[in-house]
């Protein structure tokens, strides 16, 4: 079947098998391998992307169901060489170790901060409960999100 999905502003029209999952469409058809495949069972969150603005686990969405939608992947966050404030937060606060889970955390954080620009630590941990970091680097991930939230609110960021 033919499917058209706009990914990071660019249209991708591809002839695919009906059972193709969105994450495979993004990686193999669109060539955007920033979105990772982790557990494949909708638990780990590594494959999180924005589908029409909503954070979803792209291993549990059929590409066919996403026909005609707009998807944002981690490749769509930065503006040229300028990192998105969330990416900057993960950089500044060392919010990653091996980095495998990071694209999913970044995309989930986009949604979290859009719904709650000034989350408490508990709200950050609850909001990101659908993303697993098997290096267990959660403390710095929370700090990275707090950094990004402050920056996106336009506040001065205190140095460490």
């Amino acid at each position: 079947m033919k499917v058209s999905i706009k990914v990071n502003g660019q249209n991708y029209t591809r002839d695919i098998e009906e059972r193709t999952l969105l994450v495979h469409f993004l990686r193999e058809q669109a060539g955007l391998t920033g979105t990772h495949i982790g557990c494949e069972t909708s638990l780990c969150g590594a494959c999180t992307v924005l589908l029409n603005g909503n954070a979803v686990k792209s291993c549990t969405v059929l590409a066919a169901s996403a026909d005609g939608t707009e998807v944002t992947t981690v490749e769509g966050l930065a503006k040229g060489n300028e990192l998105h404030p969330i990416q900057e937060g993960f950089w500044e606060k060392h919010g990653l170790q091996c980095g495998f889970c990071t694209p999913g955390f970044l995309m989930a954080t986009v949604q979290l901060l859009e719904r709650n620009p000034n989350p408490t630590e508990d709200e950050i941990r609850h909001g990101l409960e659908g993303n697993y970091c098997r290096c267990t680097g959660y403390h710095n991930i929370v700090k990275a999100v707090q950094f990004a939230a402050a920056k996106m609110r336009g506040e001065a960021i205190a140095a460490d």
């Binding site: 954070a55 949604q111 659908g130």
Partner: peptide, 9 residues
């Protein structure tokens, strides 16, 4: 139910 991403879908 589930988590933020699951509740979106």
């Amino acid at each position: 139910v589930g988590d933020m991403q699951v509740r979106n879908m």
